[in-house]
């Protein structure tokens, strides 16, 4: 279990500033899909109940239909929850020291990476489309000096605010780091 009050390799002065997941459209679409996929056969069975009720009384066809319906319903429930787990385990944690990117791809593929604030070179927020603009959600791209290292926060709420927060944290990190270097040089524990 991931303990937010005790992250792996957490420094003494490190604290979580933002904890992000994809915005509510992601899980709402799973619920709508589940309701839709269970609702259509249920409505169809209700509408044609005079025929369906007769079929259900056949000694072989009745159990066959019921087993098929049971498998369909349980499969929908399981796939919906697997999709939800995929959504739920995709998280982005931003502390005053680093950015942690955890992505779940299906059940058996998981990618966890982190980036120190000192390595951040560029932060970009991107909002596209009417829905994204209206509900204020979009992507945030965090780029490092390395050409191919890029974190993408997908469909997060308030991407502009997230971008501003990361930029502020990077500036604070660099300022405090510069102070440490100056102090170390002054003490003679470090040379330029």
């Amino acid at each position: 279990m991931l303990h937010l009050d005790h992250l792996p390799n957490q420094k003494a002065d490190e604290h979580i500033v933002l904890f992000l997941r994809r915005q509510w459209f992601a899980w709402a679409s799973i619920i709508v899909g589940f309701v839709f996929m269970t609702g259509i056969p249920a409505v169809a069975a209700f509408y044609f109940w005079d025929r369906v009720s007769v079929w259900l009384q056949y000694p072989f066809v009745g159990p066959l239909i019921m087993v098929a319906a049971s498998i369909y319903l349980l499969s929908l429930w399981l796939f919906s929850f697997l999709e939800f787990t995929d959504y739920y385990l995709d998280t982005w944690i931003i502390t005053n020291d680093r950015v942690i990117n955890i992505e779940q791809f299906g059940l058996f593929n998981r990618k966890a990476s982190e980036l120190h604030m000192g390595a951040v070179q560029d932060v970009t927020s991107k909002v596209t489309g009417i829905i994204g603009t209206f509900f204020d959600y979009g992507d945030v791209l965090v780029q490092t000096a390395a050409e191919h290292t890029q974190f993408k926060f997908k469909d997060v709420d308030h991407p502009e605010k997230v971008k501003e927060t990361i930029i502020r944290l990077v500036e604070e990190y660099k300022a405090s780091h510069a102070k440490e270097v100056v102090a170390a040089v002054a003490d003679g524990t470090r040379t330029i």
Binding site: M1, H3, L4, L78, T85, T91, R110
Partner: peptide
């Protein structure tokens, strides 16, 4: 199959989910 995947799902939530 359903029970197996339910177990996998629970394991992932318990192993990687944020405590709370």
């Amino acid at each position: 199959v359903f029970t197996t995947y339910t177990g996998f799902n629970l394991y992932h939530l318990l192993r990687f989910g944020a405590k709370g």
